[in-house]
Amino acid sequence: MSDSMKVLFRVRYAECDAQQVVFNSRYAEYVDLGATEFMRGVLGGFNHLIEQGFDNQVVNLNISWQGPAKFDDVIEMAIWVSKVGTCSYTLSLEMRHHLTKKAICLAEVIYVMVDAKTYKKVEINEQLKQKLLAGAPTLTVNLAGTD
Rank of each mutant, 00 (worst) to 15 (best):
G45E: 13
D32M: 03
Y119K: 09
V122K: 10
D72G: 10
K117W: 01
L128H: 12
V114D: 15
I104P: 10
Y13C: 02
A134T: 00
S88L: 02
D3M: 09
S2F: 11
I79M: 07
H98F: 12
E15D: 05
H98M: 07
R96D: 14
A18P: 08
S64I: 02
E15T: 04
T86F: 15
W65M: 12
M1K: 12
M113W: 08
M95Q: 14
T138M: 06
E94A: 07
L8D: 10
G135L: 02
S64L: 06
H48P: 10
C87L: 01
L99C: 15
A116G: 13
M95D: 09
S25N: 09
I50C: 13
F9P: 08
E94Y: 03
K129D: 08
D115A: 01
I50M: 14
T140A: 10
V122S: 15
Y89L: 00
D147M: 11
V122N: 14
L33V: 04
T118S: 12
A107M: 08
V31M: 15
Y111V: 04
V42M: 06
V109Y: 11
Y27D: 09
T100P: 15
A78K: 04
N62S: 03
H48L: 11
I79D: 05
K70D: 07
A14N: 08
V122G: 13
R96Y: 13
L61Y: 04
V84M: 06
D147T: 04
L49N: 14
T146P: 14
E108M: 11
P68Y: 01
V31I: 06
V112R: 00
D73I: 00
R26M: 11
A35W: 09
A103L: 08
E76D: 10
Y111S: 05
L133A: 06
V21H: 09
N47Q: 12
L133I: 02
I75V: 14
I124D: 14
V7P: 03
S4A: 08
N60Q: 09
T90P: 02
L49R: 03
V59E: 14
A28R: 00
A103S: 14
S88F: 01
G85A: 07
D32K: 00
G135E: 01
K121G: 11
G145C: 11
G45D: 11
V42G: 03
Q66C: 02
C87G: 06
W80I: 00
G53C: 03
E51M: 07
I79S: 10
M77C: 08
Q66W: 15
M5G: 11
K102D: 11
S82Y: 13
V21A: 06
C87K: 01
A144F: 06
T118F: 05
V112C: 07
V58S: 10
I75F: 08
F9N: 14
